[in-house]
Design a protein around this nucleic acid. Structure first.
Lengths: 339, 339
DNA sequence: CTAAATTAAGCAAACGTTTGCGTTGAAAAA
DNA sequence: TTTTTCAACGCAAACGTTTGCTTAATTTAG
């Protein structure tokens, strides 16, 4: 019936010494004699003492936890990123309080608030695609809570963030296709509101501009990233008088949806080449898939954001306080060609 | 410079009332007049008051958090399960403290200890494949902490757990192959120490026994689940004088590794049929893959374990205390055939 | 008009730990 | 011997909140 947890008070009582001595003994404080220290330690073990983090957090005003908010953990990108974050944070003795916004602004707000309640010392957020109102994020600034955004970042100045350099990644993808002789390249992009879509589009234009090729805006179509939406997009592209000979798709799944659709409707041609983003490990085992994919290194992104947050936390405790600058990290992508 | 958080004490001072009145006002306690309640509420809003969960947790002895420990979040199964757990827990106003053991016993022990420190009210664990010593898990019992194991469960009596009914799933898979006329069926299993391996083997035997077919133990080979290990396994099977005409593999990736290898070495034959486990969504887009896969419903597993834990927490607070029984839930699998 | 009941609020303890400062006794210095 | 130092430990406050009990003021009953 160990219904209640053992406290240092219990230890002190058993040993007939003060609780402060117990506390100090457990922390190897110099002003405690080795003899009592050992007595305390063995008694603590014997009674099964487990320090109470809530009490310690409360008394020291530090919880030793950071919050992580992502849209959906079932997306492999976020799973891998969170995995990296947990590894990094654990190394520095921070614990992770985790929540997913399910891509809704409402849940995101609730989560932010809840994290604030829990007094996380810092926050790592990949914001919901539907978040338009940033008031809950501003609240974080008011409370001087270090926040690092990653992957999906708000459209704001003066924030720390880690993102993939999708613009360069797209340029790389374009150059790959251009090198292979393609001159009419389609882009099945995501929802226009997404930062990630804008970056892709930007890279797309830049690549063409750099090669002094002319730009046909109708070669860019937007998909909601569902299977049906992707099929719509490809049909639009192929219905053009001069259809593309190569297509860049928003992610691996889009490419696969599209290719599968073409094969089922007998419109598949080997010459139509695809390049996508994400580079899922299984890709290299697929007979009909994109011929290259832009690796975004989700692990590195998670790791880097966590490291930055750890830095900020340290700075804060060292009281360098006044914001030196804002971290704006672009993780370089890598175009992975099949085989 | 809101360097410090606003407390109810600050509100009380500003309003010239006692902190207890502020506390009660914020909780709609009946013995506070509507007038002061409103004054308190608006002052709280004005000052940007954010209740301190650490303080509340400390004072009430309840943290409102549950711990979740999984081997590796980058495995899609666990990512989906954790996603479900978070959804379920959030609905009941519990927060998630998350950690991964990376399949090492040492980290698992550290995590359990850390969760204990943090006074999580309950724990959801999928144990590391390398965990042999259960002393840290026994410690949880001593502290009367409700624990629900899922997927990877320790070999112990008197625990709550949720697992996939892999035995029946395997029987289903076997029947599928037997119906299609196969009589020599191989099984590329995982490490023998795994509960999941034992269940598969058991189902394999049962299916044959039920049909009164004779058993050839050499048709079962074990793989470490790496690509190389899987290739080894298939070579062993195919080197037999009477090689199998169908093979069940531990998971989708094993099947894909193997099929890929056969194709590259020109040993691939269409007649050699594969059935695997996990049913990754991308499977249905693969030209060369298993013809069926055992869906394990990771979301349901996570959800169910979380629900059980919530039940246990409620029981505990209602003081039904004395363990009524142990939850032993088997989630039924479903054989998903391609197309 | 007094006594009892009710309303609205305040006081203070408790939760477990840390930590600055004070106290004691003994050893070292004078 | 007296004073000083120092080692070893205790006291008590503080962290933010909740809550049982008390108190004061007001209303109602008798």
């Amino acid at each position: 019936m160990t219904e209640k947890f053992v406290t240092i008070k219990d230890i002190a009582q058993k040993l007939g010494i003060s609780i402060s001595s117990v506390s100090r003994a457990l922390h190897n404080h110099p002003s405690i004699s080795p003899k009592t220290r050992n007595k305390v330690r063995s008694m603590a073990k014997q009674l099964g003492y487990i320090p109470s983090s809530p009490a310690i957090s409360f008394q020291r005003g530090k919880t030793g936890t950071i919050g992580v908010i992502v849209p959906k953990l079932s997306e492999p990108f976020f799973a891998t990123a969170l995995s990296a974050i947990e590894n990094t944070a654990t190394q520095r003795n921070y614990k992770i309080l985790f929540g997913q916004s399910l891509d809704t602004e409402e849940k995101e707000k609730e989560l932010v608030e809840s994290m604030l309640h829990h007094r996380v010392e810092g926050l790592l957020i990949s914001i919901s695609k539907k978040t338009m109102d940033y008031s809950h994020l501003d609240a974080l600034k008011k409370n001087h809570l270090p926040v690092v955004y990653f992957d999906c970042i708000p459209h704001q100045k003066n924030i720390h963030y880690v993102v993939c350099d999708l613009r360069n990644g797209t340029i790389e993808a374009m150059n790959y296709l251009l090198r292979k002789g393609h001159r009419t390249i389609g882009l099945i992009n995501g929802p226009p509101s997404l930062f990630a879509s804008m970056e892709r589009e930007d890279g797309y234009f830049r690549a063409l501009t750099m090669k002094r090729l002319k730009i046909d805006r109708s070669l860019i179509v937007s998909s909601d990233l569902s299977e049906a939406g992707s099929i719509n997009a490809i049909e639009t592209l192929l219905a053009k008088k001069k259809p593309p000979t190569a297509i860049i798709t928003f992610n691996d799944f889009t490419a696969i949806y599209v290719i599968n659709h073409l094969r089922k409707t007998n419109k598949y041609r080997k010459e139509l080449e695809f390049v996508s983003y994400a580079n899922m490990p299984i890709l290299k085992f697929m007979e009909y898939g994109p011929s290259a994919s832009v690796e975004q290194f989700p692990y590195r992104q998670g790791e880097k954001s966590a490291e930055i947050l750890m830095d900020l936390l340290q700075q804060k405790s060292v009281k360098t306080s006044e914001l030196s600058a804002f971290y704006k990290v672009y993780i370089e992508t890598q175009l992975i060609e099949k085989q």
